[in-house]
């Protein structure tokens, strides 16, 4: 897991904050699509340098007030089964708003008797980027206030819950998880 604080320049933060897009949807950003389309595509493209293998494109989505923050990994949010030979490397989280209290990112899972979790948690600090192994099960701790983050996963192939996506396209897709 890696944390980068003050990730974007202030101009890019401002542009991201004033962006006029479909927040309730998933944004497909092809690896060879135009990074300058909007502030979100610029952010997403900037994270590609942390990925080693060639990729087809990324899904990016906004997390605003999750109804029921449960343990999950983002591969299985997009795929019915693991793309065994084409697993994505990381889940990226970029924080835009921090809540009044709580809302840390926790790593762990559902145990037989009770949930287990790692000691390490990530505080949601605006303009912080964190990335970790896409396999890692995580969840958001309960919080009060407004917490906004953007999730990003770079895919080697199109996640199986979607129609085939192209490397040079930017598309707005439906969310395929609850």
């Amino acid at each position: 897991m890696k944390l980068i604080d003050d990730y974007l320049k202030q101009d890019d933060v401002n542009a991201l904050n004033s962006l006029h897009i479909e927040y309730a949807k998933v944004h497909w950003i092809g690896a060879k699509s135009n990074p300058e389309k909007n502030a979100l595509t610029k952010l997403v493209h900037s994270t590609k340098s942390y990925v080693k293998d060639p990729v087809l494109g990324a899904t990016a989505w906004y997390n605003v007030r999750p109804v029921d923050p449960v343990w999950h990994n983002d591969i299985l949010s997009y795929c019915d089964k693991y793309p065994i030979n084409n697993l994505p490397e990381h889940t990226f989280i970029y924080y835009m708003r921090s809540p009044d209290s709580g809302g840390h990112l926790e790593f762990g899972g559902a145990g037989i008797k009770e949930d287990w979790r790692m000691d390490v948690t990530v505080e949601p600090i605006p303009n912080r980027l964190v990335y970790f192994d896409a396999f890692m099960t995580h969840r958001v701790a309960p919080y009060e206030g407004n917490r906004v983050s953007i999730g990003i996963v770079w895919w080697k192939i199109t996640p199986d819950r979607y129609e085939e996506q192209k490397i040079d396209e930017y598309n707005v897709l439906e969310r395929v998880w609850k």
Binding site: N17, S18, L19, H20, I21, E22, Y23, A24, Y62, V64, R65, M96, N146, V148
Partner: peptide, 15 residues
């Protein structure tokens, strides 16, 4: 009524 497109602030109000 979630607007299809809008600003983050608008989305946060209805999400």
């Amino acid at each position: 009524r979630v607007p299809l497109e809008g600003t983050l602030e608008t989305f946060m109000m209805v999400a």
